[in-house]
């Protein structure tokens, strides 16, 4: 699977510290992102966004001429694109939940380059998934656009629940997703007692995507914890 199309995304980076801007730009460049604009104030950011049309904004919460929350509202009123907050306030998690401002994610400083990149990738994949090509697995391919699996030239369509479960697993490809997170994705909040239904759905998904469903290699069980989707080429 190729992530190259994500690396083309226009990223707007706003922070009042030049050193931090340099650092984040350097991290993004090293990972292959090259289309980046930086701003040190909210005013500058708004001006840039009008001509640059960013597809992802990474914002500091405290800016010299206002708060990052206000800036996000201004930016999103023009065009809706994902926003990641980078904040030095340890308690901002509360604020985000409390205000329901519609930020896509937030990170508390300091952070490791790989943590930042993981979040950016996750947001971009989630926001621009319609551009996804086929997802290549060891024994099949998933076409999320058509909600179907292609195995040995055969087209197998996915049910709504199977699609939800696979989407979450794909967004976290290579990482364990808990039973609870999968149930929540398929059945909504507080999904108690769906563990057996989930197992049934997983079995059916395996029948569609695995070369040998009895010995799964793409959709792996992590006992007691959850499942992991192994995507080729990642």
């Amino acid at each position: 699977m190729s992530l190259e199309y994500l690396k083309q995304k226009r990223i707007l980076l706003v922070d009042d510290e030049q050193e931090l801007l340099n650092l984040v730009v350097s991290i993004l460049n090293e990972d292959g992102f090259w289309n980046i604009q930086t701003a040190k104030t909210a005013k500058e950011a708004i001006a840039i966004s009008e001509t640059y049309h960013p597809e992802l904004a990474i914002l500091d919460v405290m800016l010299p001429d206002g708060s990052g929350f206000g800036l996000m509202e201004r930016l999103k009123s023009n065009s809706d694109y994902p926003v990641l907050f980078l904040t030095a306030c340890g308690e901002d998690g509360d604020k985000f939940r409390g205000f329901g401002l519609g930020a896509d994610d937030y990170m508390v400083k300091p952070f490791l380059p790989k943590e930042l990149l993981f979040r950016i990738h996750a947001i971009l994949r989630r926001s621009y998934k319609e551009e996804n090509p086929l997802v290549r697995l060891s024994g099949s391919e998933i076409d999320f656009d058509r909600a179907e699996v292609v195995k040995n030239g055969e087209h197998l369509s996915l049910t709504a629940k199977e699609y939800e479960i696979l989407s979450v697993l794909y967004r976290n490809a290579g990482r364990i997703v808990t039973i609870d997170a999968l149930c929540e994705a398929a059945w909504g909040d507080n999904p108690f007692g769906y563990e057996n239904s989930l197992m049934a759905h997983i079995r059916r998904i395996r029948e569609k995507i695995e070369g040998n469903p009895s010995h799964p290699v793409s959709l792996i069980t992590v006992k007691g914890l959850g499942y992991k989707l192994i995507v080729e080429g990642r």
Partner: peptide
């Protein structure tokens, strides 16, 4: 304490970020 821990986060980001890049 909250103020000190806030102020230390940005410089520490630099240390962690560049060291993380050098590491890999």
């Amino acid at each position: 304490i909250a103020g000190v821990s806030h102020d230390i986060r940005t410089p520490l980001s630099m240390v962690m970020g560049y060291a993380g890049q050098l590491e890999s």
